[in-house]
Amino acid sequence: MSSKTLLQPHLGFGLGLRREHYIDLIDGHPAVDWLEILTENYMVPGGKPLYYLDKIREHYPLVMHGVSLSIGSVDPLNMDYLRELKTLAQRVKPKWISDHLCWTGTQGINLHDLLPLPYTQEALQHLITRVSQVQDFLGQRILLENVSSYLSYQHSTISEWEFMRELATKADCLILLDINNIHVSAHNHNFDPLTYLDAMPAERIQQIHLAGHLNKGDYSIDTHDHEIVDAVWSLYADAIAKFGQISTMIERDDDIPQLDTLLAELQTARNISAQALANNRRLQNHY
């Protein structure tokens, strides 16, 4: 795969599609630029999920975000899953497809968790091969997202950010940069989140995730059930200042509020992004 511009066009500011908001979205067409669906929720034969998905697709661009690709597992790629993914993509016509830099199980078991990988050359080679296989099968580049993690392996020989950069470059895939996950993992593993941003290849960052988390004092848990905290907003501003305009969305998976609340939070993202871009322009003009 090669093209001059690696990235798809900028989509603006989006939300995760949740069933609590189906009717508001269909009836009111609120000002959301795009929506991200949880892929596995729509890998069903029929009924309400696909009915509402088709209705919403008439009004909003969609992207697909999965949790079960298990790109880092040593199990063979699950071809049944990939075929279902491709079939759903043919129906949804997403702007792009993403999943996570993780493994979710081995020996045929799915632990339904986004488990961190050891950042080793062995794992890197394994993932480069697998990402290439998936992209060849789907006929498009995929996005991989950095996960929140609570453990880091003694076996790792490079940092997560170096691993992500190497993988994206060598496997020719794109990056879904989760700002909240960087913040959570930085707290849990005691690293500077700006070091993570500095290592990212700007030309491969297609999307940004923002979300809330739970700070337990000594560590943080990625809960997606809170508002976005100031430190994450600040890191988001740093990311936009560094990488420029990037399609951004807010993930909320629990304690899901009224759509208006999320729209207000999305407006904050718009404002912060605009401010960071304006600051950049001022700096460029100054020099």
């Binding site: 597992s73 040593v74 493994w103 199980g105 081995t106 020996q107 078991i109 632990l111 968790d113 488990l115 990988l117 050891p118 080793t120 062995e122 794992a123 394994h126 453990l151 880091s152 392996y153 003694q154 076996h155 593993h189």
Partner: peptide, 25 residues
């Protein structure tokens, strides 16, 4: 190996088997 590491952690998560304290920093 990657396979051994994944199997070790999975066995712990499923059955709390394996002494894996030294797996993580």
């Amino acid at each position: 190996t990657l396979a051994e590491l994944q199997n070790t952690l999975q066995q712990y998560l499923l059955h709390q088997q394996n002494n894996i304290d030294s797996l993580t920093l």
